[in-house]
Design a protein around this nucleic acid. Structure first.
Lengths: 201, 201, 201, 201
DNA sequence: TTATAAACGAGACGGTACGTCCTGTCTTTTA
DNA sequence: TAAAAGACAGGACGTACCGTCTCGTTTATAA
């Protein structure tokens, strides 16, 4: 999604004047990502992004009102494509989707930089809406399928289950400052699955 | 612990010249905490801290080498006192210690500001050493007692169990931007406990 | 004269395409004059002129290559109509023409703005050619008539005499930042006339 | 005179904190003068002055609130030392002082740049107070001595006489964009002197 | 009548400079 | 000798204009 400040009123809005340069936008986002992984969020300056992208500063400010918004867009643009799985077996799906998601996330060059956004509550909710929600919903679907199939208890708190799986891994990554490997991720999935299993299965 | 750059050579060292003003140090830390909760880590400036504390900038730089170190100290100084529990029953202990810890943590005015420190891997490890480790170890002790008592399986990964409990709650707090209440924390504890219980108990 | 960059090749050149909008030109010049008297030459921006005139910036740049040229044209367009006099008596003519000229000049809203153009030698010569020369020549004519009539000495430096009259008044206006009144102007004329009078008259 | 914004309250005011660097001030004024003669007032940027002087921009803004004030000070600092004369004969004094003053003024590398200041009435009065007034008064003294000696009429307007001499020459320099030579200046002095001479001398 | 050509307003473009704020250091006076 | 005060060189901020360049839309002559 593009962070245009003025949204065109409709599909047939003519947008007078010279249109915005799509190449410039690409160059800015790429420069942002490159610099994020080089110097981190706090040391990132709009000035440097403009220089690296070969673009004037106003061209950046015309599109994004702040550094945080720019980084939000850049991270979003660069987010690893969401892994999906529907093998018919929910546990297999989970064992595939969660490790892949977390491994990708925590090995992304901008992942840690993204954390700095979490200092601002507003940014957290923006990140949540654009980045986390779709991934959460896919995971929730799998769990609901498992409940429908009788594999998991019917009274479980699906949201909490997701928080346990994702939270444990993200927290571990954050605190230990080391990437999360697929094996660890799978063990977490199994532990949570075990604690939610329907009795007698 | 105070981050003095020049450590006194011994307990009986007279330290020539005018001694450092302990009041100034207090004022600086208090001003830091106040500003952290007002404007957040990213917007916090040494300049503003000095002004609010009624202190010169060099007085701050003499004691702390960077904004991050200053914040680290301020957060540490303000950290809620660590809750302990040893009722004899490990589950009761966990049900007491974890909710109290998390509720305090996530309602602290500087909690969110602390997150911003996580953007810098160096700061993460510093935070971990000074703040998280003692709390982790107390929790690990409880789990080890439970294993020794035969209440939990002997082959469990204690570190991972802690990450699941704490991570789930921290992640939920971060992502939903809402405080964590004692009831939610207790449910997480119970879920994890259940998944680790020794068979037949 | 309008400072068109591309001069039409002749009076009967049809110039294909849409002709330039005369209304736009008027609006631009008027906006220029208005802004000149409001903010002065140095603070005048093409951007503001375009906005005030309800015109795009290229429409201005298409006609005038620089701010100085635009202001030159605007000043020229607004110059007070040149007073003339030929009563038969040169002193009477001078007493009429010089005060009127100077009073008009120094009370014009753009007069002071014009001074700023004098910072650029190129602009000075342009201003001289277009604005000052015709007025100078009319004044010189009067002095020459006076010489021919034997009222002034034959060996006087006419150019210098003009500089004394006009220069004294312009300088006074510039330095005292007050308008020049007709009475003062007439006294200057009389002083200079006196110092140039033919002996025995 | 130095354009310190905050004037020390008295001669014995200690002024706590690090004092302003006199070398920096010199470097700034010299850089200003150099750039003025290179690019003129309108093209002069504070940025370039700071770079040339090897100084941070705030160091300039701490001392001078605007480009105009800085230039005013630089011009003042560079003003040619005021020529004086008191030979006993007022006409000789005038013939000496006026040409020297005007020749110096109009040949200074920053003279034309100074003209741009005249676009702002405020600057004109500042310039007048600091630069023109003392020179005017010296000239007025000579004329008053001549009146007292009976060489000039008692009823003359001294201010106007000065405006005629100085104004004619400045105007000529401005309009013809050529330097004023000593001979021309002397002829102007003589013309004005002649028109003011007491009858019978 | 239909191209073709040029001007129109709007507004984005790469830039430069603005004047402000903050950085981390250095220098002075006071205690 | 550390304190406060405050100036220092430097660098990034976000803004205002610069002068140029598309855009899509008139408006007029030429084919």
């Amino acid at each position: 999604m593009t962070a245009t400040t003025t949204v065109p009123p409709g599909p047939a809005a003519p947008r007078r004047g010279r249109p915005r340069d799509a190449q410039a936008e690409q160059a800015i986002l790429q420069a942002t990502v490159a610099l994020l992984s080089e110097v981190g969020f706090n040391q990132l300056s709009i000035e440097a992004v403009a220089a690296r992208a070969g673009v004037g500063k106003p061209t950046i400010y015309r599109r994004w009102p702040s550094k945080a918004e720019l980084v939000l867009d850049a991270v979003d643009r660069l987010a690893p494509p969401f892994p999906t799985a529907d093998t018919g077996d929910p546990l297999t799906d989970l064992r595939q989707i969660i490790p892949e998601l977390l491994v990708r996330l925590t090995s992304s060059p901008v992942a840690r930089a993204t954390i700095a956004l979490a200092g601002d509550p507003e940014m957290v909710s923006r990140l949540g809406e654009r980045y986390l929600r779709p991934r959460r919903e896919a995971t929730a679907d799998i769990l609901h399928r498992a409940i429908a199939a009788g594999e998991l208890r019917a009274d479980i708190d699906v949201e909490m289950a997701i928080d346990m799986m994702v939270g444990a891994l993200v927290y571990r990554w954050l605190v230990t400052a080391q990437p999360v490997d697929a094996d660890t991720a799978r063990r977490v999935v199994d532990m949570v699955w075990e604690s939610l299993r329907a009795p007698g299965r």
